[in-house]
């Protein structure tokens, strides 16, 4: 998958990193495409015009919050709710940035700005895997990997949003394209549900979100997320204390 030739000492192997990024991210386009198409379809269904659709897609570039925003706009939610819900849903990006930062700390500022704007779930996951597999890589190479994967995803996302916006009405119902969004969310959760605190967080969040599902404006998601994070946090602390006690014996 990567070049076998040894690195030229001192010269960043940008081409190698770019190629690795494209190859790593290509399989994930299999859900970027339907997700983007559905995003465009929903935008046209709720009555956004082309400028609004593309602005949402380009400025936000985050599928989950785009969907939530569109639902809230359709339900005439106040702006404050739209903003608060979107930010709650996007809180995970702060964690992603914290995870990336030690790997790309020494890279140029403009590179980090681009990485920040373009950081989405599949790119972040692919980047973390590659950085750990290539610990000898330089920060510039890591930025190159991230940006090549992210730019491809960005381009596909915008194209599919456009296509969905214009041709969405023609999509057959049996493809259930709009269901690819919840499926994608479940799929993105799968890699992180690896220990008991995570499962507890997911269970508490799910139970809360289901119990409060009649609340307007996706408030059940925000409430579920908040309680779930707290549950995970306390379970994590309890687990650590138990481990400390066990080690002390």
């Amino acid at each position: 998958m990567t070049n076998a030739s040894p690195p030229l000492v001192g010269r960043p192997r940008i081409g190698w990193a770019v190629q690795a990024g494209l190859i790593a991210i290509l399989p994930t386009q299999l859900f970027v495409v339907p997700f983007g198409l559905v995003s465009g379809v929903v935008a046209s269904e709720i009555g956004l015009d082309l400028a609004q659709t593309m602005f949402l897609s380009i400025a936000l570039f985050a599928g989950a919050s785009q969907f939530a925003t569109m639902e809230l706009l359709r339900d005439n939610a106040p702006a404050v709710i739209v903003i608060a819900t979107g930010l709650a849903i996007n809180l995970r990006f702060i964690m992603y940035a914290a995870a990336l930062s030690p790997w790309v700390r020494e890279a140029p500022y403009s590179g980090r700005v681009a990485v920040g704007y373009l950081n989405v779930d599949n790119v972040f996951a692919a980047a973390m895997v590659w950085y750990r597999a290539q610990p000898q890589g330089t920060p510039v190479e890591r930025v190159a990997f991230h940006l090549s994967a992210a730019v491809l995803t960005w381009v596909m996302w915008q194209i599919c949003t456009l296509v969905g916006f214009y041709f969405g009405a023609a999509a057959p119902d049996y493809l259930a394209l709009e269901f690819s969004a919840p499926i994608a969310f479940l799929a993105l959760a799968a890699p992180v549900l690896v220990d008991r605190p995570s499962w507890l967080a997911a269970a508490v969040a799910t139970a809360t979100a289901l119990a409060l599902h009649e609340l307007p404006f996706n408030l059940n998601v925000v409430a579920g997320g908040g309680l779930g994070i707290m549950a995970g946090y306390y379970a994590d602390r309890a687990l650590e204390q138990t481990q400390d006690e066990g080690a002390a014996q």
């Binding site: 479940l186 499962w199 967080a201 997911a202 508490v204 997320g225």
Partner: peptide
């Protein structure tokens, strides 16, 4: 725990 909570 943010993704584990928010995504489900």
């Amino acid at each position: 725990y943010t993704p584990a909570a928010i995504l489900p």
